[in-house]
Computed example of a mutant assay.
Amino acid sequence: MPTILVVDDSRLVTDIVKMRLEMYGYTVRLAHSGEEALAAIAAEPPDLLVLDVQMPGIDGYEVCRRIREDPALDDLRIIMLTSSDDKRAAFEAGVDDYLNKDIDLLNLPNRVRLVLDME
């Protein structure tokens, strides 16, 4: 089963997302900052990253840009799960999909499956 790294500075959000994805059999790891996410990816790249935008330190856009600049991470899929409404900035940073926390959380497992199946 694919491994998903969930990154959000809110432990409540990461716990909810983790529980939701584990219900579908995914292996879920957590990070609570951009810095933690980059370190976790460097140590053991996941199959997919679920990433918030607004975090202290390195924000989600910068995490995306750094990942997309690394040829070794070409196949890492990224879903931005955020309350931000700036879809354009998210796609320009390199995400594969964009979900709104307030609206799309229930659809997350389906979107994860679709993004993982992308060629």
Rank of each mutant, 00 (worst) to 15 (best):
D59C: 01
L114S: 14
A43P: 12
T82S: 03
P2W: 06
S84K: 03
I67G: 05
R11A: 02
G60D: 01
E62Q: 14
R11M: 02
L106N: 15
D70A: 15
P46A: 13
L99A: 07
I16G: 01
A89H: 10
P45S: 09
E69P: 05
V115G: 11
L21I: 04
Y61Q: 04
G34C: 07
A72L: 15
G34D: 13
P109T: 00
P46S: 13
Y24M: 05
R65G: 04
E35I: 00
L12S: 08
L38A: 09
D70I: 14
Q54W: 10
E119D: 15
Q54D: 06
V53K: 06
I41R: 03
R68N: 03
R88E: 15
V112N: 08
S10P: 06
E119I: 02
N110A: 12
D8F: 10
S10N: 08
V63Y: 09
M118S: 05
V28A: 11
R29G: 15
E36M: 13
S83C: 07
G60A: 05
P2C: 05
R29Y: 13
L5M: 13
R66L: 14
E92G: 04
L105C: 08
E36H: 06
N110V: 10
C64E: 04
D97S: 14
S10W: 10
D9Y: 08
M55P: 00
E35R: 00
L51T: 09
S33R: 02
V50H: 11
V28F: 09
V53R: 07
L12Q: 09
T82A: 03
K87W: 13
L105Y: 03
G25S: 01
